[in-house]
Design a protein around this nucleic acid. Sequence first.
DNA 1: TCTACTTTTGCAACCGGTTGCAAAGCCGAT
DNA 2: ATCGGCTTTGCAACCGGTTGCAAAAGTAGA
Lengths: 333, 333
Amino acid sequence: MTVTLDDVARRAGVSRSAVSRTFTPGASVSATMRTKVENAADYLGYSPNFLARSLTTRSTKLIGLVSNNFHNPIFLEVFDQFTRGLQDRGLRPLLVNLTNEKEASASVRMLKQYSVDGVIVASSTLPPGFSKAFRDAGLPVVNSFGRYEVMPEVHVLGIDDIACGRLAAGELIARGYKKVAFMGGPFDATSTQYRLSGFEKELQLYSDVECSHSFAEAYSYQAGRIEMARLLEAGTNADAYFCGDDVLSVGALSAIADKGLHVPEDIGVIGVNDMEMAGWHNINLTTIHQPFAEIIQCSINLIVGLLADPNKVPEATLFPCTLIERGTLRPRL
Amino acid sequence: MTVTLDDVARRAGVSRSAVSRTFTPGASVSATMRTKVENAADYLGYSPNFLARSLTTRSTKLIGLVSNNFHNPIFLEVFDQFTRGLQDRGLRPLLVNLTNEKEASASVRMLKQYSVDGVIVASSTLPPGFSKAFRDAGLPVVNSFGRYEVMPEVHVLGIDDIACGRLAAGELIARGYKKVAFMGGPFDATSTQYRLSGFEKELQLYSDVECSHSFAEAYSYQAGRIEMARLLEAGTNADAYFCGDDVLSVGALSAIADKGLHVPEDIGVIGVNDMEMAGWHNINLTTIHQPFAEIIQCSINLIVGLLADPNKVPEATLFPCTLIERGTLRPRL
DNA sequence: TCTACTTTTGCAACCGGTTGCAAAGCCGAT
DNA sequence: ATCGGCTTTGCAACCGGTTGCAAAAGTAGA
């Protein structure tokens, strides 16, 4: 059924090596030989078996794309851009869904068994040690949307979560909010603490502003809704909330609406990410934009670089985030 | 760096075949041999190379997961469930993003080169001939979310688009709408025509109801918004719209709001899919639910079945869809 | 025409596994 | 101790490619 190198060689009346060489860029083949082989190959519909080839070349062009964020709308965009970007460079994404696992070992073994050339861990919630497991196994790895560290153990790309927190705080202050609060996702999610600490640090500069914080059970609509309902019930009467994520913000908005309160008149809300739906007219969420496209482009460039030179010393690269003004904060004073 | 069969064999002082057999379920190995090999393997950290193995077994456990719907929020859920479901059965999804292509040939060649065991085409907008290209290349293929045909050329699973159109029509009638319209995505998208034809067929039973239709440029928020704005501007004063997709519906809602009109008082809107955001309070879209989980489960079962018996004659399987009542249609009379 | 040098080609070994086959080992029964 | 039958093991060929090396062919200069 499948046509092999031998079939082509036999039909073209040449050696196996000759056929192999015509399909290996940069190998030495004469023009006559090349056309003879190509004719035979076309006739038979031959194309080389990548996996057999990988046995000797030690390169599969497979990249493990590992994530546990299959429930955040921004990740649709993330997957789209990663898969397209990888494809454009002749690489193939082998998708790994970690939703049910927190341990890296199974994925590490599996990806080694498939001889992937490298791994991209795309997650803002996995612990930093996670990506390291791949590195320890000798796989080039890039952690996208990970947490900044001065001397990271693997390459990390992401926004400056501290600056992000400061930006949010600054905006709330510039709009005259006096009693503000941070509502994060789970405390142990990588980025949560940094966003909070940046937020608090900035607020310390303003002694007339009160600040509190709490954490939702997950980065989800329901969790945001529940947590905000609890806060309102408990009488935490903050006049503005910085939510650690857009979906969380929308959940919060729904709880606020249920209470009969109005945004931004009674309460202000600002999110993070700038998912597509944040711009939909009936959501219209003021939020902090993460430069996904840039982060993904750089991640891909980086992994491609690592394939050539796997020993580059790990760095953390930070990307700036920007405010997207919409309708859930009152105007600047 | 990587430890091979030979290393283990040498360390355990046994033949290569013995090692291979301990890692091949159902092969004949004595208990003594097994422990000897396993000890050596554990010591060296050995696990077999799947790709080398695939050369002789002719099975890679790789499944091509092909889609062009990377911009519809429901597909996050789709990818989540497909990847999880495949993983649970020991299969690995090789993701192919077709966003920029309409031709199958490149993907077919690529997936053959990677010797995938089968292909899942998950798309509601690719032409039926697309999946056939995989079959013609000798790859087992399942087309999920495809269009029903009595004698399909490949296995197809999806909702009954005609029934879906009828359901929408029936609901609009039951709520007393008299001048209704269908707003589809691109006319050539697989499912669009069937939904329209079901919709019209049902309406023909009611001579006092007027019906018109139009098509947006894409299944997207912007396209829905633009098309609805155009309709309102043109004075197509329908009192209810059946939109071919939820995202399209939200776009339509935004154009309606911009005109200062209210939903459902002035205009009713019903969508299709029941994406997660449709349930968010500030969207609150009445829509028709597609049973994604069931379709995906069955697709996976089917592809697994095809791996064992690739020659099963292709069938189309239909799944029922159901109304999800929310706030964009007025109540039944 | 002969020599020296460069390019093209084929041979054969190898990548990391699996598997048919025959030899070796084991068992209980005679 | 011998035999027959069953299980376990190793040998060697194979899966579909690549590649170092040496032989063959081509090219140019004298």
